[in-house]
Amino acid sequence: MTRKIKTVAVVGAGYMGGGIAQVLANGGMSVVIADVSKEATQHNFERLLREAGEFEQQGLFPKGTEANVKANLRAAVTIEEAVANVDFVEEAVPEIPAIKAAVFERICSAARPDAIIGTNTSTLPVHTLVPYVTNPERFLTVHFSNPAPFIPGVELVCGEATTQDVVDAVKDMLARANRSSATVADRPGFVLNRLQYVLLKEANSIVEEGIATPEDVDTIVRSTFGFRLPFFGPFAIADMAGLDVYANCFKTFESAFGERMATPELLKSLVAAGKFGTKSGEGFSGKFEPEQLAALIAYRNKAYARMAQLLDDLGPSPIARK
């Protein structure tokens, strides 16, 4: 049976850690927070309670969230007090190895030997932090995105020693908090930031080459392929567009930009096998049954229409191009 996480400590109660604490408290976990000092902890605790009420009043949180957070969230005087006897500890202190090392030493000295320990690092590989943690089989990255109260995806990164029961327990906790999770390998940048930074790097190159302005790049991203991304990832989008089409387009890119934009080997192998995505019934996403295809197209059309309506309702962002 999956280990059940019922009690949580979040160490570092600032913008990210505080948001994580709100999410888990609203998900029914008993959550205690601790920060660099008693005063900082109390300040953040009061802020989190106030924000929960404000967000609910604004319709940003579901009804009942404020009551859940007030019932399930409390503040500790010290880190040691916070982590004692909890099932799961989430570290959310600044992305500086020396600070994390000192915090992990305090956590491990006071937490139960079997308490699961997560780090909210966004770039530091797990193996660089493992030396600071005792019983590394209970340690992994549990990477929430900013702003944590509103972004549903969480990246899980295991170390060499991390056991499957630990991963399963964390995934179960996140599901109860209405969060999606994905487990990825321990490489710099993981998946989220590796993709995000590649996009930003290419966007900078486009501006530096005089192809478009930053404002126009942002317009294209948010109103074309970025419009699809809340519903489909890059593999599903390629399957619907046609992998043979993608393979032909890569020839143009490879001719213009060389090896860095060469056709991916996985794409080549699928096309060579006649697997072109939805049009052939098989692609990156596996096989598509005929009834799935009709349902997929109906879902896609509905999703994009709803997204357009949402954007119309919200209006332009404060920094949108006039």
Rank of each mutant, 00 (worst) to 15 (best):
A71Q: 14
L48I: 13
V77W: 00
V77G: 01
E56V: 10
E66K: 15
G64E: 02
E56Q: 13
V83N: 01
E54W: 10
A76I: 02
G64Q: 05
Q58K: 14
L49Q: 08
Q42E: 15
N72V: 06
G53I: 04
E51H: 13
A76N: 06
A75E: 03
P62G: 08
A76H: 06
K63T: 11
G59I: 08
T65I: 11
K63M: 04
A67D: 11
N72E: 05
Q42W: 06
E51T: 13
N72T: 06
T78V: 05
G64W: 04
A82I: 09
P62F: 11
A75P: 03
L73R: 10
Q42F: 06
R50S: 14
T78R: 03
G64T: 03
H43L: 14
R74Q: 04
E46F: 10
Q57A: 15
E66T: 12
A84L: 10
E80W: 05
F55I: 01
E56S: 07
N72D: 06
F45Q: 00
L60W: 12
P62L: 10
L73P: 11
E56W: 12
E81A: 06
Q42C: 02
A84M: 06
Q42R: 13
Q42N: 12
L49P: 02
P62N: 07
K63D: 09
R50M: 11
L73H: 12
L60S: 08
E54Y: 10
V83L: 02
A71L: 05
T65G: 05
I79K: 00
R47I: 05
E80L: 03
P62Y: 08
V83S: 01
A52L: 07
R74E: 00
E56F: 13
F55K: 13
A52F: 09
E51Y: 14
R47C: 03
Q42V: 08
A52M: 06
A82K: 09
E54F: 07
A84V: 01
V77Y: 00
R74S: 09
E54T: 13
A67Q: 14
E56G: 05
E80A: 08
E54L: 13
L48S: 03
K63E: 12
A67M: 06
V69W: 06
L60P: 00
T65N: 10
F45L: 05
E66P: 03
N44F: 13
N68F: 07
L49M: 09
E54I: 12
Q58S: 11
E54H: 13
L73V: 11
V77E: 07
I79Q: 00
G53R: 14
E66I: 04
R47V: 07
A76L: 02
V69M: 10
N68K: 15
A84K: 15
A75Y: 02
G59L: 08
R74V: 00
N72M: 08
V69F: 10
N68T: 04
A75T: 05
F55C: 04
Q57G: 12
K70V: 04
Q57T: 14
